[in-house]
């Protein structure tokens, strides 16, 4: 479902060009569970942002579900982010002045879903992440693990095809980290394509496929036997 052809992303820093991604070729299948590892600065986040259409490549092509994204305008990309892609981040990225319920509701508000349907879907997402009793809590009233579960609920409420997670356990203790990992793995079992950036080798090895980056290049690509 995902294909990258000689995809590069360069950044101009002063008079120096940084190759965050350097002619990457990659294919990812539907419902796969992929981990991306590599030292800091190797291009993991850049890859994930491009996959999530938050960033665009300097050269090369990104084909998503058979559609070349390089010709899309901002509205089309926003539409795909809304309908097909879920994001979760290391630092949760919830809107602090909104409750858990409202945070989860937000993607549906943006795509114009009616309040009744929103309410039903938020409830079921909250149930999936086990936070039904925290619906009216603000992020500051929740623990790190709970916040990440709200973020997961928000990322799946639009029923996307792909879940992109950038070090989702990076800010969590082991116990809540494990809960979060278990939760997203369950979503993967239920049919979601899961791509996780991680520092944690143990977590990386749980996936079906482990890709290692260095200096913007794939240096290792292993499938579980």
């Amino acid at each position: 479902m995902i294909r990258l052809d000689k995809l590069s992303r360069k950044f101009q820093v002063g008079n120096q060009v940084v190759h965050a991604l350097d002619e990457v070729d990659l294919e990812i299948n539907t419902n796969d569970y992929v981990s991306i590892m590599g030292v800091s600065g190797s291009g993991k986040s850049t890859l994930l942002n491009i996959l999530g259409l938050l960033d665009t490549p300097t050269s090369g092509d990104y084909i998503l579900s058979g559609i070349n994204t390089s010709k899309m305008d901002d509205d089309e990309m926003a539409g795909i982010r809304s309908a097909k892609i879920g994001f979760i981040f290391q630092s949760f990225h919830l809107i602090p002045r909104l409750t858990a319920f409202e945070n989860i509701e937000m993607p549906m508000i943006l795509s114009g879903i009616s309040p009744n349907e929103r309410s039903m879907k938020v409830d079921s997402a909250l149930e999936k992440v086990g936070l039904t009793d925290r619906a009216d809590h603000k992020p500051e009233q929740l623990s790190g693990g709970q916040r990440q579960r709200v973020a997961i609920a928000r990322s799946i409420v639009m029923e996307p095809d792909v879940l992109l997670a950038d070090e989702p356990t990076g800010n969590l203790d082991t116990t809540s980290g494990n809960e979060v990992v278990k939760l997203i793995e369950e979503l993967n079992s239920a049919g979601l394509t899961l791509i996780v950036v991680t520092h944690d080798r143990e977590m990386g090895e749980r996936s079906n496929r482990l890709i290692e980056l260095r200096d913007g290049k794939i240096i290792n690509d292993q499938r579980k036997p």
Partner: peptide, 16 residues
Amino acid sequence: KSEIGILRAIGASQSR
């Protein structure tokens, strides 16, 4: 800013 980033990530276009 971070809220704007979040909205963009969860599907908001620039015009939105």
